Computed example of a mutant assay.
Amino acid sequence: MIWPIARYLAYLPANLVFVLLSYALSPLLAALSLATGPKLPGVLQWFSTLDANLDGGISQRVKGYRGGLSGWRLWWQRTCWICRNPAHGWQSELLGMPAAGSIILRQVISDTPKNQWYVMETAKGVRFFCWKRDQPLFGGIYLKLWFGWVNRAYDGRNHHYAFQIGPKRA
């Protein structure tokens, strides 16, 4: 299990650069989307999600995202969507693990607190992991922790690299 952890740590600096770049460019990318549509052109889509366009919060019924917006409100909503899902395209395409033929070798799930551990393997025998935990804080607020590669291939092609730390409501 040492090699997957070493690979994960080796990818961490590149991931942090991509995420910070996504945050910094989010206002410009959202402005560009007002002219080009809700899907960023070409590799710019890598700054957002590959499984949804910049209006994904609407179709996924994420609280606070609504349709029918235009102008500054649409720009702000798309800026927020990029910041909510920073660099997912990079994390999938460049740092991800191929989903085709991958299998779960080990899965451990507990509910108190919600904790998930997966050891997976690609079709070529490369092992990788996923650890998710919702750490209770106070008042129905949790600290969401995701490390490794997401156990589900959201785009259908790759398990994207995950490094998420943030608040979550129950």
Rank of each mutant, 00 (worst) to 15 (best):
A87M: 08
P38R: 15
Y65H: 10
W117I: 05
Q135H: 12
T36W: 07
Y118T: 02
Y118R: 15
L137G: 03
A14L: 06
K132E: 14
S70K: 10
V108F: 02
L105Q: 09
D55R: 14
Y118F: 14
S59I: 08
L40P: 12
Q107W: 03
R7M: 00
Q91I: 01
S102E: 08
N151D: 13
C130S: 06
V150F: 12
A99K: 10
W72K: 08
Y8V: 00
W149V: 03
R127P: 06
L54F: 10
S22P: 01
Q164W: 04
L25A: 13
L32R: 13
D155T: 04
G42N: 14
D155K: 06
V19L: 00
M120N: 11
L69M: 05
T112H: 05
G67D: 14
G156A: 07
P27F: 12
Y11V: 00
K132G: 10
G156V: 05
G89Y: 07
A14G: 01
L54D: 13
K39D: 15
A162H: 05
C83D: 04
I165C: 07
A24Q: 02
Q77H: 02
F138E: 00
W90I: 06
G139Q: 07
Q77Y: 00
H159E: 05
A162D: 09
A52P: 06
A10K: 03
F129Q: 04
A35C: 10
G166Y: 08
L9S: 01
F128G: 04
L143P: 01
G56E: 12
G64D: 15
D134P: 04
Q107I: 00
A162E: 07
R7E: 04
F138Y: 01
W131D: 03
G156H: 10
Y8M: 01
W76K: 15
G125Q: 11
L69W: 02
D155S: 08
G57C: 10
D155I: 05
K63V: 10
K168N: 07
A30K: 02
Y65V: 03
L9R: 02
W149E: 03
A100Y: 14
L12M: 04
L16N: 02
A100Q: 11
Y8R: 00
E93C: 03
W146G: 02
R127Y: 09
G71L: 12
V43L: 15
I104H: 10
